[in-house]
């Protein structure tokens, strides 16, 4: 199942619509990285609300996306991790270090905006 990517201002929103195979996840990674470059995006929100499981491959792919987009100057927020998924991630030993996480899409966009503002202030004075 392909993941649609929407452009909203400086941000891209990838909204996962159902269970994904490893190939789907790799495809998402590829598509997102190219879209960030093409649209000169400042942030990417990945909505995982309906993802059925977050196994080691899914977590590794999200981490790769975070690192790759950071190299292109954009930040990633993973939003909508369900309590059951969080529980299984901890049992499995998975973390999403370096990735912004938040409850929902709205929060995720707000956090990305705040993070980008902070960067700008940091670079150009107080």
């Amino acid at each position: 199942m392909e993941v649609p990517i929407l452009k909203q201002g400086d941000f891209l929103i990838a909204s996962i619509q159902g269970a994904l195979t490893d190939t789907d996840l790799t495809g998402l990674q590829e598509k997102l990285v190219h879209a960030v470059r093409r649209h000169r995006s400042k942030g990417v929100v990945i909505d995982v609300t309906v993802l059925d499981v977050m196994d080691s491959f899914a977590a590794r792919t999200l981490r790769s996306i975070t690192v790759m987009t950071r190299l292109l100057g954009a930040k990633v927020a993973v939003v909508g991790i369900q309590p059951d998924i969080a529980f299984s991630m901890v049992q499995l030993g998975l973390t999403l270090e370096g990735t912004i996480t938040s409850l929902d899409l709205e929060d995720g966009i707000a956090m990305l905006k705040a993070a980008n503002n902070k960067d700008r202030l940091g670079k150009h004075g107080r």
Partner: peptide
């Protein structure tokens, strides 16, 4: 997950089990 539901397994146990199956199948 589908079969486990018919066997009384529910809630987060379903997600834990589905995740384990995903790892082993991979």
């Amino acid at each position: 997950r589908e079969l486990a539901m018919t066997l009384g397994i529910s809630g987060s146990d379903l997600t834990l089990m589905a995740t384990a199956i995903s790892e082993i199948a991979r």
